[in-house]
Design a protein around this nucleic acid. Sequence first.
DNA 1: TTGTAGGCGTTATCAG
DNA 2: CTGATAACGCCTACAA
Lengths: 343, 343
Amino acid sequence: MSRPTINDVARLAGVSTKTVSRVINNSPLLSVTTRAKVQAVIAETGYVPDPQARALALGRSMQVALVHDGALPGVIAEIEAGLLQGLAGSGHTLTTIRLSPSGGVDELAGFLAQHRPSGVVLDPHLARIPDLVAACDAGQVKAVMLGGEQPSPGLIASQDRIAMARLVAWLVRIGHRRIGLIAGPDHSITARERELGYLDAMADHDLDRGPSLIVAGDNGFASGAEGAALLLEVSPRPTAIIACSDEMAAGVVQAAARRGLSLPDDLSIAAFDDTPLAAQVTPSLTAMRVPWAEMAQAAAGLITERTGHNRHTVFVPNLSVRESVSERGKQAGFAAEASSSGS
Amino acid sequence: MSRPTINDVARLAGVSTKTVSRVINNSPLLSVTTRAKVQAVIAETGYVPDPQARALALGRSMQVALVHDGALPGVIAEIEAGLLQGLAGSGHTLTTIRLSPSGGVDELAGFLAQHRPSGVVLDPHLARIPDLVAACDAGQVKAVMLGGEQPSPGLIASQDRIAMARLVAWLVRIGHRRIGLIAGPDHSITARERELGYLDAMADHDLDRGPSLIVAGDNGFASGAEGAALLLEVSPRPTAIIACSDEMAAGVVQAAARRGLSLPDDLSIAAFDDTPLAAQVTPSLTAMRVPWAEMAQAAAGLITERTGHNRHTVFVPNLSVRESVSERGKQAGFAAEASSSGS
DNA sequence: TTGTAGGCGTTATCAG
DNA sequence: CTGATAACGCCTACAA
């Protein structure tokens, strides 16, 4: 026979379909005996509710949508992995949709209206986040945003600003004074916070944070290389460059190497995010690790859970020390030890 | 009012719902006038069919599932991008599911039975591909496999074996004789073909292809580094190493750099796949470019199309020349070099 | 605590 | 060519 339906189960268990339905949905008002009886039949028959039928009746499909625009594939991959793990066993399915860089709002609204997912996870680097969140609210869909400092409902926060300040402080402590920054795109919330963290810390330490030390990037590899070319021209030359993404940092490495600099002795490089890429370039990158996968997993929980338990939704990045940063001042003999090595 | 349904459209157009249904599904037997009339109403009302209801009635949901096991994230990202593009505008949605490395067959079968996607795309590096394909067939779901030499229905082929042979031939032409290989995992079809291509070409050129020149990897970064460590011990030392994935090649770079080798002068490195990673390590990797995104797009077409037009489904990789390979002088002194730079 | 009737939006069947 | 009518599998009223 084909797949059993709820009616088959009901018949076999000698109850009504609604009772079976209640068992499936963990309705609290059910006698222990009927529940057990029904569950036995379910187990026997291998019955699984049909998501399509449920979606039709409910007006809501059991899928969560990951929305991104194709930027920072490494971060997206981490998020996807985290979501997949967080969703496993919840009966939810992961659907990925890619917004065209422009006019994504209508696309998203259309998708929501048509597919009515139970939740949406927004890539932290997405432009126009506020509009997108609004679209989700309008569509009665739980939206979860990843990244951002302020803990708020529907936000899995990461303290990037504080983390960046700590990174700078650490560089200062090991002797760096001229520290350049390759920032991310303005529209990215996390990119802005990282830049603010840099400014905070440079001010705290009373260091030069003039515009010549800050160049704009778009989080991509090429813009990292271009940014490095710019920063390596300023004089006095920075002894360290922080890039706001792993890809840009990889670009800095390549640009520096092509100019004949020896890394990390002539230039220290620090990255942010710490996706697998950070450990895979040479020299491996010291990077602030943003736990994207864990954050995504938490996001999955937020969407899945019936209760709006806003438990542990603030994450704090921590430093992965690798090879790309060296001490400054004394002799650069202290080869950085790989405290945490990637896969 | 809420979203218009097919009935609203029917009423407004003064026809039956079935007629509207026929319009939506491009049924050939429809008078031009009624079709036009209905389409006008559809345009006015902004009617969009409900995928859930359609899925329930059809017993098949308009989604295609990308199945992978988490290995080679770079390749998966490319495939995902290609699918997203190929699916755009087709009304299909992309669902990603991750199989646990073991026992994935049951997982997949369960998913198919429950969600009845219109198609499944299988990651080329997945173990147990045959079982998975069988599961798809059993579930009446179109399965498309990416990679593999033999063009066959449901296969988007890539001539990896030939491409690898060409890569080797090219290395030989520019002076390399001792060429090591870091192979991929046995269970991967593409990995096997790449290894065969290497053996073909080495035999053609009558070069040493003894077991000491071939080490097994798992496509991951770490295994590339480990493989390199092994290959750099054999004597005479290889002047070039081919890694069967970008990640492994990146590992070779790191391992070589840590031993103080200068790249590409002391060692040439070639990669396979040519995901973004290949261009982002330093030195940038010369790599055989496998057009995963295009292949995935073709896969999407195969699933989407009503007709089984097996058009252009064989792809051929081509070489991206970058920095990691250098010509080898005719004054072949591998022996001298091997002894001079032994760790 | 459990059952009955009806509807969610679409498609297929089978007449006209 | 077109249109009633019955599924598809589940869920939410409303009763009992």
